[in-house]
Design a protein around this nucleic acid. Structure first.
Length: 501
RNA sequence: GGGCCGCUAGCUCAACUGGUAGAGCAGCUGACUCUUAAUCAGCGGGUUGUAGGUUCGAGUCCUACGCGGCUCACCA
């Protein structure tokens, strides 16, 4: 028996349009017939996929009664016979309701079912005359009534805004969207498997930080009432993970959200997922080798091959990847040798001549970055390590032994997008102190993205940090690459959008 | 933030140089025991993103705003 419940009637202050009204009426009618439209559980013996698979193993299996549950996504009434498709997390399967099996009374309850409703059914698998594997329903249970309609069935949901705002509809209707996010989960799983197998320890460090650092970005600010203090959402995990290396964890990594208060684009979401790893006694060459192996492994695990297509380019992620210095790549693609222009104004003129459009007040380091972004990045389709960056761009990277103006750093590019950033970590506290001072000067000069002076971190380094190779890899971009999605919004379930009031 | 494009029924889209806003799907009523974009007959469904303006008359032209997409700038 269903307990009498006043909410059987639709709340009067909830919207109820012409499409919802008949569904609410059906819900009330079912309740009056003693049917709970929102029961508690349903014991399944099979998923849709499992039932379909069972057809391939003939014998007693096929005769067995199966119990499965899902959302009604299509329905075709034909008098005393009705076909429908049931969709669950594994896929969809056809089910058939027959009057002569169910009896006219139970069959008549079908008229109160709608597309979008969840039902559980028990029945016998059979194959229709047209060859479709189907379950003949012997017993059906309403599991959840849907009072709003599903999106249109042929074109699905095409409105991009609605797809992002109501991702659940996108997932119900667009199979490829669901697959992309399942793939994303496999990517993260494979990354963990790879790192764990190499002896890395997964850790979690603070998201709320009194000082932010480890990357060049503007932060989000928040406030803790009890502590009466301003806090920042982290822009990177770097400085905490290196404290852990000081603490004796030789190999650590963290997979988590970073937050950067920047503009939105097809490549940028204000919160994004980053993997950072740190390995003691390794340098950036060791990290390079690990990076190419890891990406190839992830691709193999997630999509079954290292050969991918991105923006109609055939790309092979199998190691070894090309290694080239930043200097030679900029010379190759922009025709500018930045070492020949050590003065800022000189390099500015050279960049303009080459066809770049740098910001008028760009520093020397920003100009180098601009040359990289404009001329080199878009051309790096096959996996490429760009190595050896100017010191000024990298306040936490160790200098080359043979060249004190250059640091041991690489960025990995695939398909024209940057997927990783790594360096031999700076562990000399005297040098780190100088770098922080330099960042302070840049901040004073108006660079909002310059590092804050992190005294605690410096004290940690003064206790001694072993030589360490660090890596940061953007998970969202890696998934974009592996799924051939060109907008980061298509690999983030709920991307940031403007509020809609 | 700049530029360009878009916003019409629940969904997907039409509507010529300004002249009564339509179709398919979804919904409702009926027929139908092998359909799968089921089919057939009938019915209902709209403040054309919002607010102004021009005009006898605006979905259409103008202005502002909102939201989205692409792109540039910034960034990973």
């Amino acid at each position: 028996m269903v307990a009498p419940d006043p909410s059987a009637h639709w709340p009067p202050d909830r919207p109820l349009d012409e499409l919802m009204a008949p569904r609410v009426e059906k819900l009330a009618r079912l309740e009056q017939a003693g049917i709970d439209p929102f029961p508690r559980r349903f014991a399944r013996t099979h998923t849709a996929q499992a039932v379909l698979a069972a057809f391939d193993t003939p014998g007693p299996q096929q005769e067995r009664c199966v119990r499965l549950a899902g959302r009604i996504v299509t329905m075709r009434h034909m008098g005393r016979l009705t076909f429908a498709h049931l969709q669950d997390g594994s896929g969809r399967i056809q089910i058939a309701f027959r009057t002569d099996v169910l009896g006219p009374e139970r069959y008549a309850l079908l008229r109160d079912l709608d597309l979008g409703d969840f039902i559980g059914v028990e029945g016998r698998p059979f194959v229709t005359r047209t060859g479709e594997r189907t379950v003949e329903v012997h017993e059906a249970t309403l599991l959840a009534k849907a009072v709003r309609p599903l999106p249109e069935k042929w074109h699905g949901l095409a409105d991009v805004e609605k797809r992002y705002r109501q991702r659940y509809l996108d997932l119900i209707v667009n199979e490829d969207v669901r697959r992309a996010f399942e793939l994303r989960a496999r990517v993260v799983q494979a990354m963990r498997d790879f790192l764990n197998a190499r002896g890395f320890l997964e850790v979690e460090t603070p998201v709320l930080q009194p000082l932010y650092g480890g990357a060049a970005a503007r932060p989000f600010e928040t406030y803790h009432h009890a502590l009466d203090r301003k806090l920042f959402l982290r822009i990177a995990t770097e400085l905490y993970l290196k404290r852990l290396v000081v603490g004796g964890f030789d190999k650590v990594y963290e997979i988590g959200k970073d937050f950067r208060n920047e503009g939105l684009s097809t490549k940028h979401n204000p919160e994004f997922t980053m993997m950072e790893s740190y390995e003691a006694y390794a340098d950036y060459r060791d990290v390079m080798a690990m990076t190419e192996e890891m990406v190839a492994f992830i691709a193999q695990q997630a999509i079954g091959t290292t050969r991918i297509v991105f923006r109609a380019n055939d790309i092979d992620l199998a190691p070894p990847w090309r290694r080239a210095t930043l200097r030679e790549l900029i010379l190759e693609h922009a025709g500018v040798d930045y070492r020949a222009h050590p003065e800022r104004d000189e390099l500015y003129r050279a960049a303009i001549t080459a066809g770049a459009r740098p910001a008028p007040h760009a520093t020397w380091a920003k100009l180098v970055d601009e040359l990289l972004a404009t001329f080199v990045e878009p051309r790096l389709l096959q996996p490429t390590f760009v190595i050896d960056y100017p010191l000024a761009l990298s306040p936490f990277a160790k200098r080359r032994a043979d060249d004190f103006g250059t640091v041991e750093r690489f960025e990995a590019f695939v398909g024209g997008i940057e997927i990783a950033n790594a360096f031999t970590e700076l562990n000399d506290p005297r040098d780190q102190y100088q770098r922080f001072k330099e960042q302070l000067a840049q901040r004073a000069a108006g660079d909002e993205e310059a590092q804050q002076f992190d005294e605690d971190f410096l004290v940690a380094l003064e206790h001694g940090m072993p030589p360490t190779g660090g890596l940061g890899m953007g998970i969202d971009r890696l998934v974009m690459l592996l799924t051939d999605q060109h907008s980061i919004r298509d690999v983030i379930l709920f991307p940031q959008l403007r509020s809609k009031d």
